[in-house]
Design a protein around this nucleic acid. Structure first.
Lengths: 157, 157
DNA sequence: TGCCAATCGGATTGAATCGATCCGATTTGA
DNA sequence: TCAAATCGGATCGATTCAATCCGATTGGCA
């Protein structure tokens, strides 16, 4: 139930890119140097995030990448889905419902779908803008992108 | 962002065990036959779930396992944590905060903790009892264990 | 009281996915 | 027209995960 290292790196990179939003384009090398992510990995992430439409890339001399949308319009769910694929806790949730090789009539499937939606909503409630904001005074309740009551009601672990 | 196959199997097994709650003990063989999970895997899961305190095992002839708590008191979060370990989206979330090998002062960490709590709460809102209940008339909002407002406000994808 | 049978528990092997790395194709600027 | 710098895809190694097997323990029965 933990997201992969690539997804973790992608969140850090997007957050770093958001901090330089006004400063024109950045390239994979600069992002790598700023975040400490190995350069080849940063290049791979740039490719995937561009393919997903979260980054816009310009090739050639002086090229680079930049956020295709404002940081407030990019959520953790977008980044995770761009790197890891659809957010589906169970294998049967992303494909059709006909290939559950366990029980032929899986009665727990609808409930799992509900839990799946809840997890996705939790990730969709955190924006890159909220992550890139400086959090020195660590607020108990982080800023939310949309008026979603999901995270606001969660007590710390 | 998908849970492992073992965790998936564990949920199915716990759900099957909940349906036979009154019928004394069950053994790994019976659970395997009912769910279609390979027997060795079922044995492994029984071990882990017992170690986590979700199942109570009795050895010897006529032994077996049974739920240690009512199905309404066991949530998806309990099962997932028993099989996969703590629910921590990022590696730094489960260990101390001192070994983030990327940024020395990780500013996105507090926000990720909030998202992590939200995900865990989403899983803690679904009980085994809700899963074992027959869901032919698939309700839009699944039954919740505690008065948690988390899932109740989530719209389907 | 001794034996037997059935069970859980941990250790081992194989496979698949993931992460890191490298090289080629493309484009812009001089 | 040339050259430099970038993105994009393909390859290789490592780690984790899933499945399998065997031994230790316990309760029932003769």
């Amino acid at each position: 139930m933990k997201l992969s290292s690539l997804a973790d790196y992608a969140v850090v990179m997007m957050s770093a890119a958001a901090r330089h939003c006004g400063a024109a384009r950045m390239n994979a090398t600069t992002l790598s140097a700023e975040t400490g992510i190995p350069l080849p990995t940063a290049q791979k992430l740039v490719s995937r995030l561009s393919a997903a439409g979260l980054l816009e890339s310009s090739r050639g001399t002086g090229g680079g990448v930049r956020l295709s949308r404002p940081p407030a319009a990019i959520t953790l769910a977008d980044v995770v889905e761009a790197v890891e694929g659809p957010i589906a806790m169970t294998a049967c949730a992303e494909t059709g419902s006909h290939d559950c090789n366990l029980e032929p009539d899986c009665r727990i499937r609808p409930h799992m779908d509900a839990a799946n939606s809840a997890v996705r909503a939790a990730l969709a409630g955190v924006t890159i803008a909220a992550l890139s904001r400086d959090a020195v005074r660590a607020p108990a309740v982080p800023q939310l992108a949309v008026p979603s009551p999901v995270i606001g009601t969660i007590a710390p672990l």
